[in-house]
């Protein structure tokens, strides 16, 4: 059946090509459209609305390589009705996809500058796209640093890829865990502590921070202490969303609609809001 593409609320059906269990309750799906037409190009940091038949729809950031939009790649943690529904689907199952939506990471602004990527927990998923892009265009950037904090060594997302990135001589990758296990020989502590040890020129650095709100707030404060101007810090926000096109009102954060003004927002614009509770 032909589907009109002009209604932004109509999804396209995608088939789950492959599933990979990343962590307990966290998995990655690769998706191909059922109609075999092109997958829309996306920018690093954008998200799609993923729909499970009869259950509902949630926003999930795209964690694949923007240079190769096919297949579509999403990493999902099962925490609610829809994500649990997604977890129950096997390879071959169909899901609805709308998107991509949202304001991406400002990669063009970062060209010629040092780039500091700071991820907490699942916040690495939307930054993995940035890593792919940066590695493919390595000469366009100065020093590139990834700081990644996970709760425990078992909670490290994309561990093999992190190890692979750390092997690059032109990338600085530092990992820390909140709680070590017996076999862990790496750094222990919150990710903010890694910032002071990273090598970057604060005046000409762009920082992309993604993780829980409290983590992003403390990272941004630490970055400002290290003299990175607030205008050069970007965070990726998360809110309840029903439409992703600015109509449903659910994702409001002060004056912003996270679905269209975000999810990536300049820190200086939300600095005051982040300090307030229940905005």
């Amino acid at each position: 059946m032909l589907v009109e593409r002009n209604d932004p609320m109509l999804p396209r059906w995608y088939r789950i090509q492959h599933r990979r269990e990343e962590l307990a309750n966290t998995f990655t799906v690769t998706l191909e459209p059922q109609d075999h037409e092109d997958i829309p190009v996306f920018d690093c940091g954008q998200f799609n609305m993923l729909y499970v038949f009869g259950v509902g729809e949630i926003p999930i950031s795209i964690s694949g390589d923007p240079a190769h939009p096919a297949p579509l790649i999403h990493t999902i943690r099962a925490v609610g009705n829809v994500s649990n529904g997604l977890q129950g689907l096997k390879s071959g199952a169909l899901i609805g996809v709308r998107g991509p939506f949202g304001t991406p990471w400002p990669l063009a602004l970062a060209e010629g500058k040092d780039l500091l990527l700071i991820a907490g927990g699942l916040g690495l998923a939307p930054l993995r796209s940035v890593m792919y892009h940066v590695i493919a265009h390595r000469k366009a950037y100065g020093r590139v640093t990834l700081l990644y904090g996970a709760r425990t060594p078992e909670d490290m997302l994309y561990r093999q890829e992190c190890e692979h990135w750390r092997a690059h001589l032109d990338l600085d990758v530092a990992v820390t865990v909140d709680r070590a296990t017996e076999s862990w020989r790496g750094s222990v502590g919150v990710v903010t502590r890694l910032i002071a040890h990273a090598l970057f020129d604060p005046a000409k650095t762009l920082a992309f921070v993604c993780g829980p709100e409290v983590m992003m707030r403390f990272c941004a404060q630490e970055l400002e202490k290290c003299r990175v101007p607030g205008e050069q810090i970007f965070i990726s926000m998360e809110r309840n969303m029903k439409c992703a096109i600015g109509f449903c009102g659910h994702c409001q954060y002060g004056p912003f609609f996270i679905c269209k003004d975000g999810p990536v927002l300049p820190y200086y614009q939300v600095k005051d809001l982040l300090r307030k509770r229940e905005i």
Partner: peptide
């Protein structure tokens, strides 16, 4: 203007409606 979207599914799980 705020809205939510709900799925109304039949008992057999064969048909669903997205309702705003």
């Amino acid at each position: 203007f705020c809205t939510t979207v709900e799925d109304v599914i039949d008992l057999a799980g064969e048909e669903t409606e997205r309702v705003r």
